[in-house]
Structures are given as C-alpha cells and as structure tokens.
Computed example of a mutant assay.
Amino acid sequence: MLFLQAIQWILDPEHWAAVNFQAGIAEELGAHLWLSFLALVFTAAVALPVGLYIGHTGRGRGFAIVVANVVRAVPTLGLLSVLLLVSLALPPAVFVFVLLGVPPLLAGAYAGLEAVDRQTIDASRAMGMTEWQILRRVELPLAAPLILGGLRGATLQIIASVTLVSNFGINSLGDFILGGLAANDYVQMTAGAILVTVLALLVDGLLAVVQRFAAPRGVSRGRGTTTARGRRLSVPTGTPVSEGN
C-alpha cells in the first residue's frame, strides 16, 4: 500500500513543480543529475589516465589498490561534513563523490588493459606501432567493455551517494527523503527512495547497452571482459570471469 501511495505521489503533477519556494521533483532531479555529472567528469579525468598508465605499463598497480581500499573506507557523510566546514575552492560535494567514483573506474581501466593478450601487443610492436598507437588502436578497443563496467560502477556509486548532500542544504532527490523523515511523511520518503532507485537503474541500463556494443567482434560481450591466456580476472562488480565464459 505504501509503495502504491508513493507511486501516486510521484505521478501527481503538483509535486513536479516548485510550490511555496520548495523545489519540485523536476528541479531536484535536475540538481541531482547535474551534481552526479560533474562528479563523474572529474572522476574520469582522474581515474582514466592513471588506470590506463597502470594497465599499459604494469607499474603502480599495488599502490593504486591500496589507495582505492583506503578511499572506500572513508565515511562519506563524515568527509562531506569536514569539507563543507573548511569550504574548499572545489565544491566539497563534488570532491567527495570523485573519491567514491575513482576506485571502480580505476579498477576497470587497468584491469581492462591488463586483460589484453600480451601476444597481441607484442605483434603490434613488431609491426612498428608506437606505444601511443598500441594504446589507442589495440588496447583501448579491447579493454572498452571492462572500462565501461568500471564507469557503470562509479556512476551508480555517485548517483546513490549524491542523496547525502541534502543533509547540508544542497538540492538533490534526497530532499524528499529527509523532508519526509522530518514530517513523518513516509509516503514522501518512499517516493524519494523510488526516484533515486529508478534514476540509478535507468542510467545503469543505458550504460549497459553501450557496454554491450562496445566490444569488438570476437570479444566477449556478455560481461564486457577480455581475458588473456585463460587468466581469471575480476570485473569491477566483483564477478570472476575466465576465458570461454
């Protein structure tokens, strides 16, 4: 019953427009998407170059894993509170969500390149290709499914975590959850949770379609992975795969 009431609340046109200086669903959704997009752009700018360097050269992998594990252990809400108090030049919320998004995208980038068969790379060098050409024409196309898998993980992490900024007066879909909690309006709380969940699922579904068609012919598309000589790898979602899957 509560779920159906929440769906009716979402479908009510009055809740989509701002009323009495209170943002509606459209405004909160736009703010949520914009903050998520900014965080994802900065995440890609940080994680992709580092991940591609590690995957191509094989250097720094252990250090990257340690840093990623440390970042995952940091409490998001606590870090948001500290950064909002010191008021950094870069919007604190974006900085925090970048930290959350970097580990899965970084893992997808270097794992994707490491999965490319070394014989393929050696053959490319034998043909006279430069390291940049190998990265751009050989490794990136083959690693694209795993990289996109890491992007999916980062995107879901960011979209889900952006709801926390409502605790600090920043617009997001989390406003409906907090507002409902403050007013004991469980229908609004449930509606807010549904909106966040549906947004995350829609974006993930879109990226899943892109990931499925990103693999070149002959490369596994089911899980977006390319394996090398039967080695078992873990995709960013943590699912082990092997050649022949």
Score class of each variant (00 low, 15 high):
124 S>M: 13
213 F>L: 07
198 V>R: 08
243 E>F: 07
76 T>D: 04
220 S>E: 15
145 P>M: 09
87 S>W: 06
37 F>G: 00
18 A>S: 14
173 L>W: 04
241 V>Q: 15
22 Q>S: 14
112 G>E: 10
80 L>S: 09
238 G>E: 00
209 V>M: 06
203 V>T: 10
99 L>W: 10
244 G>H: 14
56 H>P: 00
109 A>V: 09
222 G>L: 05
242 S>D: 05
179 G>N: 11
14 E>S: 09
229 R>H: 12
135 L>C: 00
204 D>E: 10
223 R>I: 04
5 Q>G: 05
124 S>C: 06
90 L>K: 00
219 V>I: 13
107 A>M: 15
11 L>E: 04
119 Q>N: 11
61 R>Q: 13
206 L>T: 08
16 W>D: 05
134 I>S: 13
93 A>V: 15
3 F>A: 03
30 G>R: 05
83 L>W: 07
60 G>D: 06
214 A>K: 13
24 G>N: 03
132 W>N: 04
136 R>S: 12
130 T>M: 00
61 R>P: 00
14 E>H: 13
239 T>H: 02
72 R>Y: 15
105 L>K: 02
215 A>Y: 13
206 L>F: 15
108 G>I: 10
196 V>W: 00
81 S>G: 10
171 N>F: 12
58 G>L: 03
242 S>N: 12
123 A>C: 04
35 L>N: 06
101 G>Q: 07
30 G>N: 02
215 A>D: 13
